Amino acid sequence: MRLELDTFKTVVESTPLVSIDLMIRNQQAQVLLGKRTNRPAQGYWFVPGGRILKDETFESAFQRLTKVELGKKLTLDDAQFLGPYEHHYDDNFSGTCFSTHYVVLGYEVVLDIEISDLPREQHGDYRWWSVEELLGSDLVHQNTKDYFFR
């Protein structure tokens, strides 16, 4: 269920959001990152993912998000759970007047996918990165880097 805009702003300003992030690795162990077009983390390279909606099961959310973010519906059986993470941003989807807090469920998937086949709704560009390269880049958001410090 999606909320009306003003209600959603109140929720984001008042509570943490729950989301799923996807660490997509190809057979060469490279990680898929997209350059974010929206707040928060706008302009940074980031892993695909998104919010879990009210009354949506983990399985349904995972299938919806993989279809929207990757163009391919996957199930939780296709992924390895990495654990919970926490993301804090000074801005939010609508501007800078309040912060955003996410509780994120991280999942890893091994999937060879063509960048040209990926949806462009949330990310203006995509590329495959080595873990060493993304950890050393100021263009990659710290919250993405945190998935690779275990």
Results as ranks from 00 to 15, higher is better:
M1L: 11
M1I: 12
M1T: 04
R2N: 11
L3G: 01
E4M: 07
E4D: 14
L5A: 12
D6H: 10
T7G: 01
K9M: 13
T10F: 01
T10V: 10
V11H: 06
V11T: 15
V11P: 04
V12Y: 09
E13R: 15
T15R: 12
T15A: 15
P16N: 09
L17N: 04
V18L: 12
S19H: 02
D21E: 15
L22D: 08
L22I: 14
N26R: 04
L33C: 13
R36P: 07
T37H: 00
T37A: 10
T37Y: 00
R39A: 02
Y44H: 07
F46E: 10
V47L: 15
V47D: 06
G49I: 05
G49Y: 07
K54D: 09
K54T: 12
D55E: 14
E56H: 10
E56M: 09
E56L: 14
E56Q: 15
T57F: 11
T57K: 12
F58P: 15
F58K: 05
S60P: 00
A61G: 15
Q63Y: 00
Q63F: 00
T66H: 07
L70W: 05
K73H: 00
K73A: 13
T75L: 08
T75S: 15
L76F: 05
L76Q: 10
D77T: 08
D77E: 15
D78S: 11
A79P: 09
A79R: 04
A79Y: 03
Q80T: 15
F81Q: 01
L82Y: 09
P84S: 11
H87Q: 13
H87G: 04
H88G: 00
H88D: 11
H88Y: 11
H88S: 05
Y89L: 02
D90H: 01
D91V: 06
D91S: 10
D91E: 13
D91R: 02
T96V: 09
C97P: 00
F98P: 00
F98Q: 05
S99F: 07
T100K: 06
T100D: 05
H101T: 13
V103E: 14
V104P: 02
L105M: 14
Y107P: 11
Y107W: 12
E108N: 01
V110P: 00
L111Q: 05
L111V: 11
D112G: 03
I113E: 08
I115G: 05
D117G: 01
L118H: 04
L118T: 02
P119Y: 01
E121V: 03
Q122D: 13
H123M: 13
D125H: 08
Y126T: 03
Y126K: 01
R127P: 01
W128F: 14
L135K: 13
L135N: 14
L135S: 06
L139S: 13
V140K: 07
H141A: 15
N143E: 08
T144D: 03
K145N: 09
D146I: 08
D146N: 15
Y147D: 03
F149S: 10
